[in-house]
Design a protein around this nucleic acid. Structure first.
Lengths: 180, 180
DNA sequence: TATTGTTATACTCTATAACTATA
DNA sequence: TATAGTTATAGAGTATAACAATA
């Protein structure tokens, strides 16, 4: 009945806790981010994924579909569905690259840019909710460090489109971010 | 042909980058952790998930299945499969709680404890690989902050088994960790 | 021959609902 | 009635393989 009984439950302080549970930490934080941002971008095709693509497309010159897939580290075969949905929603459009007619460059539309501006405000609010009760300096340091780590990990991974690495480098504060 | 052409690709520095891409940062880091740890714990049923459960079970008094599910924030219906597999592998065993015969407490076996010790060494090595090239102080601060954040987020979430909150509090250095 | 994008298919993982046994 | 655990099923998400168009 007393599921919280220290003698029988996992709340007992009599046994050790592993020093680092990095996977659990990151999982909890990312899940919270995903749940809250998923709500914030409600209506965007494919939720947070669609938002992330819209964000990359909105803040960079039109990337290729394979470039987007590599940046987000998802299989290239998922791109058609997502891009189709975003295109049908009028947020982005495919443009055949004149220099290489195999590639489609994904450009944001005027509607997409306006939508992105609205969405980014909502996402900021959602992220504020994730960090609710957390001291601002801790949050700032954490996000900065996460950015450095992610860029370092991403650029050290094999089979990466060099373009993507350059893009990511721009995001890295340590390597000279375009926008602070 | 030149997919890296700054004039046409997403590597151009002529446009802004969003200040924070928290979802992307966390996704990159967690994916790297997952890929490497998945290899490190090869052979453990259900990979990183099985390892995480084995770790919790190995470092705490036998938790209930629902307690484990809530701690890992997964649906209770996935527990039977995972616990079955871990039990069949001889790593854990189900024990009916005498105080409430509905609940099954998951206890680690001698084999499971020995295996866990081996696995933790491999996981440490895998995590070292994740942080390859990253200065030790940055890594330390990042993991510490991630722990604080995760505990804060986890404990602020609703519908949590109080036992789990207590367990997590132990992991939180700010709240008095059992093992530094 | 290699690469971009696409389609179709199969597989894994997750979520939903319903059931049992205990309380 | 409510809860822990289980089972079966359906759905979402993902990966695999094969194809067309272009280089």
């Amino acid at each position: 009945m007393d599921a919280c009984n220290p003698e029988a439950g996992m709340s007992s302080p009599t046994v050790g806790i592993p020093g680092s549970d990095l996977g659990w930490y990151l999982g909890v934080i990312l899940r919270s981010w995903h749940e809250r941002v998923e709500q914030a971008v409600e209506g965007v095709p494919h939720g947070t994924r669609g938002y992330q693509i819209l964000s990359v497309v909105g803040h960079n010159n039109p990337p290729t579909q394979s470039g987007l897939a590599k940046h987000l580290r998802i299989d290239k075969t998922v791109m058609p569905y997502v891009i189709d949905a975003l295109e049908n929603a009028g947020l982005v459009e495919r443009k055949t690259d004149p220099a290489d007619r195999r590639v489609r460059r994904i450009a944001i539309t005027a509607d997409g840019a306006a939508r992105l501006t609205e969405l980014e405000a909502k996402v900021r609010a959602a992220e504020d909710a994730v960090f609710e009760g957390v001291p601002a300096p801790l949050r700032r340091v954490f996000v900065d460090n996460a950015a450095q780590l992610a860029v370092s990990i991403h650029n050290n991974q094999p089979a990466l489109d060099p373009c993507v690495a350059v893009l990511d480098a721009l995001v890295d504060p340590a390597l000279g971010s375009v926008q602070p």
